[in-house]
Design a protein around this nucleic acid. Structure first.
Lengths: 339, 339
DNA sequence: ATAAGGTGGTTAAACGATTTAGAAATCTTA
DNA sequence: TAAGATTTCTAAATCGTTTAACCACCTTAT
């Protein structure tokens, strides 16, 4: 009960293997009558088509696209922003009959798949920086999202401008301001950044957001102090709760807290409300991303809305098109009721 | 600047290709001095290891596991239950250095990956029934979750017993009862099932849940009427809202509504509360799954808690172990405040 | 001294397809 | 009817490995 091969089929039908191969892959290379005859015969004897592994080796093409997520799958797969991104990617891949291999950004190396995938979509700077190096060195197409890699096209929103705008809307002269940031420095848990060495300062989107906040602060005449900037190692509820508690128990308490994600902002809001703090009366809060949950809070969260699904769609299309032009997607500043 | 092959390396080092291959794959086949010498040389000249595509063809093993989700990725990737399942799977795969290929259950066919993946985890009955047939015919290992396939081991909870228990806890003699079911019949949108032909009645978990409900109803002396059973084609908020509105506007209104998922139950609860209906005073509601959101409602949702993550973990382990024994996981009936 | 067993390596045949160059067959046209 | 053009099919090289079988050499036991 061994599996049939092209060769077996060719022998049975009394034609060459090339003809069978052509029947499946290049209809223009043989008469259509012969083709249907072959295809019918294959179905009859139970040959389901060329072996994919052999095809991948020979053609150098697999129809598999690797999606390199910033962090471990474990974490990424529950992040709502990442989710809608994956959703967008999957829609396009499906349309083009491509398959999706999920790859964790904290993996040791990428070389165990690089030989057989057709390309990479890299969503956020990989937690393991070694991966970026490897991606740059190999020569399959790469599209990056929410960060930049020399030589590869990127999909982004203008993070600096967006965060500048939302901050500008939230700030008044004389405000005491705190920032809840994300992966600005290397740290295992929530902490203030002080003067720690920055992480990927040139390529990271959260640094772009920080730039935007700082510009707004300066324009309003507020001095940026690094001990009022917190760093969360991951965009997950747990870290956010901790940061929220810390920042809200400071004396004097900030008038405005700029959060680099909605997840953080939501936990902060909930924490503030449960402490009896009036938002936006005593405390203004801004988020970032525009996730669904942030549209259901009371008061309604002020945030920057961007479409993760659209990012997914565009990045997949870009990868498959083979073009090399970066793309800046639109965003929308939603003022809400928290500022 | 062509890519180096094993042959190139062998020639350069003056040894046979077999020796290089062994240096990478079978350390016991050559002296360790020669091995390190070869590995060092490879690193120096930039050979990163055997080409994976060739390896897959030759070995018949790829270290890729396909996760066949019930529906389109598009939908599955945002479902919280599916998410935690994927999370569990990914944890195990990562530990074993396997990769995760996401496959949509509404795909046309599975033959375009069957040749190169090492096995399948099948989460829920695939939307396209053809896939089940193909999975049964091919001979790579398969593990099914939340449904059964002859010849393959399954991971399940005892859906019938669990739903029997929660229903029994919710029901009182003389109650008017409605059931909000999931994929019980083939239908494009929310509707009552009446006497439509059932979908996958033997293999589907929602039919097991229905069996459990019915048993409880009978024991309490309530007659099951099919026009009080609704069918939702997908476990998504939209369909649930519609079903909720319909069922709540019935006269007489049911005293108890048994929902086959928390997503449905949550929408129903919200709908009921917004209509001013007292839960559980005027209406009792039960869910199923035990998702996080269902733990935050007021009143606290009565539901059957099962661990999706655990299902993921166990199914991946089962697949990788190669064993063939099905497994029934524990669940917990949480009475909550809605009954 | 011979046989038996263990090392460390090589040779060569797979694995299952795709594809180029060109032969054979068929069809035009002069 | 031969020459040329076109269509259809084939032979053979190739993709980059792995691995069974074999060989030469060295050690140890009989």
């Amino acid at each position: 009960m061994k599996k049939l091969t092209l060769k077996d089929v060719a022998k049975q039908l009394g034609v060459s293997t090339a003809t069978i191969s052509n029947a499946f892959n290049r209809p223009d290379q043989l008469s259509s009558s012969k083709r249907t005859q072959i295809l019918d015969a294959c179905k009859r004897i139970g040959y389901t088509g060329p072996n994919r592994a052999a095809q991948i080796l020979r053609k150098g093409q697999s129809n598999i696209v690797a999606l390199v997520l910033a962090d471990s799958l474990d974490y990424m797969v529950t992040d709502p922003v990442a989710n809608t991104f994956i959703q967008g990617v999957s829609r396009v891949l499906r349309e083009y009959h491509k398959h999706l291999l999920l790859y964790a950004g904290d993996s040791e190396s990428i070389i165990d798949v690089v030989d057989f995938v057709d390309g990479f979509i890299c969503y956020g700077a990989p937690r393991n920086p070694e991966l970026s190096v490897q991606l740059k060195q190999q020569n399959k197409p790469v599209v990056t999202v929410d960060f930049n890699m020399e030589g590869s096209p990127a999909i982004n929103i203008d993070n600096k401008q967006a965060s500048y705008e939302i901050a500008k809307a939230a700030l008044k002269p004389g405000d005491k301001v705190a920032i809840l940031g994300l992966r600005l420095i290397e740290s295992p848990n929530t902490c203030r950044i002080y003067d720690s060495p920055l992480l990927d300062a040139e390529s990271s989107i959260t640094h772009r957001r920080l730039d935007g906040y700082c510009q707004a602060l300066e324009e309003v005449g507020i001095k940026v102090e690094s001990d009022w900037i917190w760093n969360l190692p991951e965009n997950a509820g747990g870290y956010a709760v901790q940061a929220a508690k810390e920042v809200l128990s400071c004396h004097p308490r900030p008038d405005v807290i700029l959060c680099m994600s909605d997840i953080i902002a939501l936990e902060l809001l909930q924490c503030a409300l449960s402490m009896g703090i009036d938002v936006p009366g005593e405390l203004r809060i801004t988020g970032f991303d525009g996730i669904e949950e942030a549209a259901r809070t009371r008061p309604y969260m002020a945030t920057v809305c961007q479409s993760s699904a659209e990012k997914g769609i565009q990045s997949a299309k870009l990868l498959l098109s083979g073009e090399n032009e970066s793309m800046s997607l639109p965003y929308e500043v939603r003022l809400g009721e928290t500022i």
